[in-house]
Structure formats: C-alpha cells, structure tokens
Design a protein around this nucleic acid. Sequence first.
DNA 1: CTCGTAACGGTTGAT
DNA 2: CTATCAACCGTTACG
Length: 338
Amino acid sequence: MEPAFGEVNQLGGVFVNGRPLPNAIRLRIVELAQLGIRPCDISRQLRVSHGCVSKILARYNETGSILPGAIGGSKPRVTTPTVVKHIRTYKQRDPGIFAWEIRDRLLADGVCDKFNLPSVSSISRILRNKIGNLAQQSQYESGKQAPHPPPQPSLPYNHLYSYPASKMPNPPGMPTLPGHMAMHRIWPSSHSVTDILGIRSITEQQISDSPSFSSAKLEEWSAINRSNFPPASSSLVNGMDKAHLEPHEAKYTQTPSGLPTVNSYVTAPSIPPYHPPTQVSPYMGYSATTSAYVTGPTWQPASGNALSPHSCDLAAPLAFKSWVASRDAMHPVAASAL
DNA sequence: CTCGTAACGGTTGAT
DNA sequence: CTATCAACCGTTACG
C-alpha cells in the first residue's frame, strides 16, 4: 500500500517509486535553481536524480508550476462536461429518471452519438458523484452559468493543496492555500528562501497537524483531480503567493511538541515522539531542518544536533551558500553518508 | 562533467 | 465491485 518508507536512490536520497517527490523538495529544487545553483549541484545536494531535477525545472520553466501533473484517472472519454450538463438537466427535470432513460435521451437529443454514449453505469456514477443531491439545490445553478461551461465542472485545473475536506481548514469558496503551487520567478531577495520554507512548512504543517493522516494526506495535492484538460491553461502560474507565507512562517514557529514537523510526507505517519533532525523521514531531515530554520529563535538552531548543516540538508540559504562555496569539504560527508 | 531524455517499474483514478 | 488503461511519477542509463 502506502510505502511509508521509500527506496533509496543512487545518491542516497529517498523516494517513493511511482509517486511524486514531496512539494517541499520540488520547491527547493526550483528555489535553488533560482539562486543560480546548477542542476547537477541541486541534484547532489538534495539527492534527487538529475533526471528528475531536470524534469522539474523544465516543467517549471514551461508552466510556472512546481507541481507534479495529475496522476491517474483518465480524461473523460464519454462523460464530457457537456454530457454531464445534460445529464444534470435531465435529472433536474425528472428526478426519478432512470439512467437508461437518460442514456436514451442523450442519444435522442443528439448530445451523444452511439460512439460516445456513456454506459448506464457511467451515467449512474455521474448521477452519484457529480450530480448527487443537486436535484434539489439546482435552481440557481441551472439558472445559468456560463454559456460555456468550464471544461471541468468539478474543479479548476490545479487547485492544489486542497486537502481533503475533512481537514480543510479554510472555507469552501476560497482556498486559503494556493490553488496550486507555483511561484514567481523572482524571489524577494532577502527572505525568498525563507519564504519558501515557510510555504513548505505551512503545507506540511497541515499534514502534521493530524498525525493519523499525515502521510496519506500529502498525496492529496496530486490527487487533486485529474479531470483537467489541457494542463497548460491559464491559471497555473503562481499560486502561492507570499501573502500566505510570511504570516504563516511566523505562525508555525514550531510544532506543539517542540518537535519539528518532522514526520512528514511519506514518512511513517506513526513515527511518534521519535525525533528529530537526523534523518527520520525518507525524505531526510529536510523537513526537520526546515522547520528548525523556520522555527527561529525558539528552537535551538542547528547547534548541537547530529544534523550537519553541510551534510545534505538545506538548512538555510546561508548554510547552503557556504555549502556551495565549500563543497569539497562536504564531499567527505556525503561520502560517509553513503 | 552536465544535462536531456527514453526505458523502466511503479501508482493512481476515471471509465 | 473489479479490471483496464492512460496518465503521471522518479530513477537509471545512455548519449
């Protein structure tokens, strides 16, 4: 099922086969690239294969988004938005209508031809999943939307980080969290990285909030919805605006226990009071590191712990820079790590 | 040494 | 309810 722990790549990095890298890492990749770090260095430093770095960077350059593509599912083949709309209409007009009747009508009304006519089971599913209780509350909606229904009635392309409703802290209308995580090309010099980290921490924070969900939930980002058409659309650029970051950054100075938001993504959700900074999670200390960093004054900085600022974690921009400067020095460490 | 990319084994989710 | 299938994933290896 959910491999709590991933596999280890040639660079010593942890990954989960088939699954996207955590946003935190994706973010860091882009972030580092923007600081002028070469991809090969980013690869080594974050221990992510260069192929992946290359891909993420390329995608980012092209789309402005750091997010992975929508995984799984398939594009609607027959149940296009138009079809769904019609089904909805039929259902509204006659709530007792049977799926097979709808099917007949779709054909009769020319909405579908025999090649793209949804199966009865598909229609049932649509009624269940997309139409649902709509029969009652339909009024305003049916009233009118746009002449052009959005490609996907359900969700916007990338509404990222929409965590499961269960834990969605924010109101329905407007996701507090960015619809999708993309960034501006330029970062405010001084705290750009911190900001990013801040972002990470907020995203992650949500997860660590509810331990039981932790790892599983993270997946949501990508789960988002796969029902989007051409990705490229309009809105995928930026989504993460700093506005969210700065405040949060301050806010999440640290997790309740004083324990950094360590148990992260794929990490065993159940890693309890274990602790810190050394590599705990498959994706290594970075989360810890970061939060440590974000934590600021309250939390003891890297000082004593096993986590070497130079080893592999990007503790802070500065640490990073020094790392860059002295990466020879760091090699041995990396080597030993292996 | 870098970096782009195809092959590969994997997961996911709509049909 | 299960299987299929096409989308995406990151790593690896090659060029």
